[in-house]
Amino acid sequence: MESCSLVDTATATLCSTAGGRRRARSGTRFLNCSSSSKEHGVSASCSIGRMLSGAKSAARRKLFRSEPDWLGLDWSDTSGAAGHHWWTTLENNFVLEASEDEYGGVVVDADRLPSDQAAFAGSLAASLSYWKSVGKKGVWLKLPVDRSEFVPIAVKEGFKYHHAEESYLMLTYWIPDEPSLLPANASHQVGVGGFVINDQMEVLVVQEKYRGSPMDGVWKLPTGFILASEEIFTGAIREVKEETGVDTEFVDVVAFRHAHNVAFQKSDLFFICMLRPVSSQIKIIDETEIQAAKWMPLEEFVKQPFIQEDHMFQKIMDICIQRLRKCYCGLTAHDVVSKFDGRASTLYYNVDEPEDVNCSAA
């Protein structure tokens, strides 16, 4: 009968041998266990060499520190049954709960994270070693707000920030010793503007509460950002409703602008949608941003110095006017499903026939 000891890193640490295994209580510094591998006639060989070869932190080295002469086992050999037993034990007892993605990576289950920092640190170190040993590539770690104390631990292990939302922070880790192939964070924000014109050739316009901006006193089209999972045209309809109270229906996308380094180094896509009014009464809903709203004659609107002096806005209005004269066709929305991913999408494209109703004046 021989004995061994493992250092516990404040989590439940496992002492595993060919003859048996026992779990220590959390907080125990040393765990002693005994085994009779010779008595059972087991020629055991197992290794933690692969773990240690990938160790990047003191916590990981501490967790898997070993004595080479334990029980007379050859810890450099990973081919034996005991080696398989060790890795199975590691996976079952230390590795964070995660699912595999289709690109050879893992997505950690945010709902089944350890409850305290010490347990998380130990499990994260063990998990990275295990995932590396089985050839995994990218790791996605989502930390909810109520687990924000885990962020420094993950960063010290080499995780990088990917993106954040109100309720969580997403971090990533690329295991292979090569450039990361994980997709970057979203690179664009998407805005919309609604060009709404009635039968009297009046444009629906608003004044925003800029206070001191060059836009003070300027009448402009209703604009805003689309929401998550919102279509471009429904976003335009919603923004017009919020800023003016007028109900509209989508006709087509007449143009879009692409700009870079607009906000926090993100790029910006801005879509101009032609909308047909189905009501006319103005009632401002978003009073925090909108100073006033009204129907304004098209000729008066385009003669504003701001539009006359800005090449982009002048070009947008030229396109809208050509659209009204049936000299230009915008992009209409069509529901499609692709076999590539089986998901419903909206495809925007120009109509094939000039006489198509979608290409007639609003």
Rank of each mutant, 00 (worst) to 15 (best):
E242H: 03
N185C: 04
E178K: 06
V254Y: 00
L169G: 02
E242L: 13
G158M: 09
E208Y: 11
G212Q: 15
L169Y: 06
E230G: 01
V251L: 07
P214F: 13
R238A: 05
T248G: 03
I175T: 06
T244N: 04
V240H: 01
E242R: 05
F233T: 01
H162L: 15
L181F: 05
G191V: 12
D216I: 14
V203C: 04
V253N: 08
Y161C: 01
I226C: 02
S187E: 11
P179L: 09
Y161L: 15
V205S: 04
Y161N: 03
P214K: 14
N185W: 04
S213T: 15
R238G: 02
V240G: 02
F250K: 01
D199N: 06
P176T: 09
P214A: 14
Q200I: 11
K209T: 14
E178N: 06
A255V: 05
A184K: 10
L227C: 08
W174M: 07
L169A: 09
D252F: 03
V196H: 03
I226S: 03
A255W: 02
T234R: 00
A236F: 09
E166I: 13
I197R: 01
A184F: 04
E157A: 15
P222M: 06
F250Y: 11
W219M: 07
Y161I: 12
S180A: 12
